[in-house]
Design a protein around this nucleic acid. Sequence first.
DNA 1: GTGTTTGCAAACAATTTGCAGAATT
DNA 2: AATTCTGCAAATTGTTTGCAAACAC
Lengths: 129, 129
Amino acid sequence: MTMKYSRQREMIKEFLKTRKDHPTADTVYMNVRKTYPSISLGTVYRNLQLLSDIGEIQKVNVGDGIEHFDADIREHYHFICRRCGAVLDLDVRKMRSLIPDASEFFRGKIEGQATYFYGYCPDCLFDEE
Amino acid sequence: MTMKYSRQREMIKEFLKTRKDHPTADTVYMNVRKTYPSISLGTVYRNLQLLSDIGEIQKVNVGDGIEHFDADIREHYHFICRRCGAVLDLDVRKMRSLIPDASEFFRGKIEGQATYFYGYCPDCLFDEE
DNA sequence: GTGTTTGCAAACAATTTGCAGAATT
DNA sequence: AATTCTGCAAATTGTTTGCAAACAC
């Protein structure tokens, strides 16, 4: 499973690093295309898949049925706005792992945890009134 | 938004109650069809959507890109096996909410939380060696 | 009778795949 | 030279939708 360099893959990775809003494959495609017009959507999909397989990026399941991607692979939590659909990173300085609690009554092995929070983002909270 | 009785809807709900493994729309379709052969897949999708809109069932996002459904609408946590893909309910008697922690550094309003755990289920843990 | 729900098929949207040529090693 | 990667288009998969007939109230 050797891997060769590819400019396309590099650009996809670079682009993803500039974004904090967890874009979809299509958004990645639209943007990388601005500087590399000949790239194809299939290549974007293939590379996003590959990068997430080797752990260089993360898949984020926002719940809209579309896969989102995140270049930040550190453990962190996501917030999804019920009104505008925005996906925000949450500061987790004080966040505890639930794995010990979850493991207590479970006979398998729990290795990871993904937590999503739902509600209203600061902007939508303000607009609601 | 009045709602009329439908035998199909009733059967879908009934079937879902018999299952603890969070089936997909297609699995619901295949099974309800055994006792009601004329039901269509579209009807299954429409009713699962409707039932989840009115809160009688729950959507579960397992991460395989397919929507799963759960007749158990109590708050509980799900475990997804990395090896076999099984989706299991976790006993949450002692599980704490992370919402207070998450809210501390966040200026929006957090109302809900969904946590998924990943790892190896009891069966796969045993088979691994 | 009025309004909702159904079955069917076609439409849709997101993603994957087969293949011949281009790029990397 | 060998192998991986790409662009393209077609195929696949999961889900939604338009419509006329069937059903519930």
